[in-house]
Simulated assay, not measured.
Amino acid sequence: MESVFPVAKFRPGGLNGKKRTSEEIKENYEKGDEFAGSNFCQIVGTERPGPLVKLSFGFYEPLDIEDAGISFNENVYGMPARSVAASDSAYLYFECASPRLDGSDEQAALIVGRLRYERKTAEGTLAQRDANMTILHAATLAVAKKLECENDGGLPAKADLRVLEASNSDKEQ
């Protein structure tokens, strides 16, 4: 992780971030609380206290990805339903049908994983965007597996870093 950003420590969002996150998603899905989120973990920087990066999960609406364009310094990757990374954020959307989520066999849970930098630490390079997506993919796949999503929510075993659409920032290295 230190090759991506200066890290002092990794702090799970509770005693077991993956397990707690999957339980919160389950509870919020069953309550129909589409605005609820769950903090998966925080990465704390070496230079000053407080979170450097936060990983969290929540729900999305189909229009969230249908109307989404591509912003400056973003890449769209080849993972379902939509995966986008910039130098300071990444989003990975997937659908989860699971025996653990009552009713998801009829209406899959629409889940989004989010990685957000709380303060700027990186340049807008392709390597940084790929690193952000790789980290988010690993956390998202862990949550999909813990939720027992059918076919792991369509997520590949390894992050697919093929860029399907790139912004015009071109600070590539």
Rank of each mutant, 00 (worst) to 15 (best):
L141V: 07
S87N: 12
I111K: 11
G45N: 06
I43E: 05
A90E: 00
M79Q: 07
M1H: 15
G58P: 11
L161G: 03
R119I: 03
E148W: 06
G153E: 00
S89C: 11
F59V: 10
E118C: 08
L101G: 14
E150L: 09
P62K: 00
E23N: 11
E2Y: 09
S169K: 01
K26Y: 01
A97D: 06
E165L: 09
L15S: 13
V84E: 02
E2P: 11
A139I: 03
L126W: 00
E95P: 06
A144I: 04
L126C: 06
Q107A: 10
S71C: 03
E2A: 13
Q42H: 11
S22D: 05
G153S: 01
L55Y: 06
P62G: 04
G13T: 04
E74S: 05
P80M: 02
N151G: 08
A86R: 01
E24P: 05
G78A: 12
E61T: 14
A36Q: 07
E2K: 14
N151L: 08
L161E: 00
A109Y: 02
F94A: 08
C41M: 15
E2S: 13
L63H: 14
L126D: 11
E2V: 15
G124T: 00
R48E: 01
A131L: 05
P49M: 05
K171Q: 13
A108T: 07
D160F: 04
E172Q: 14
R82D: 10
M79V: 04
E118T: 11
Q173V: 03
A90Q: 03
H137T: 00
D67R: 12
T140M: 10
V84R: 04
M133T: 07
L110H: 13
R162K: 12
A127V: 02
M79P: 08
F10L: 14
P62D: 05
T125R: 02
L55C: 02
R116F: 12
G154C: 05
R82K: 09
N132F: 02
V76D: 08
D102R: 14
S83A: 15
D88A: 14
R100W: 01
I25Y: 13
K19Q: 09
P99S: 07
N16F: 03
G45F: 01
L164Y: 01
E47M: 13
A97R: 15
N132Y: 01
L126K: 12
L15N: 10
L101N: 10
L101R: 15
I25V: 15
F59R: 10
A109V: 10
P80F: 00
A81I: 13
D152I: 09
Q42D: 13
V4M: 09
G37P: 04
R20H: 06
N28G: 10
E165I: 09
R48V: 00
M1S: 15
A109R: 07
Q42E: 15
P99F: 03
I111D: 10
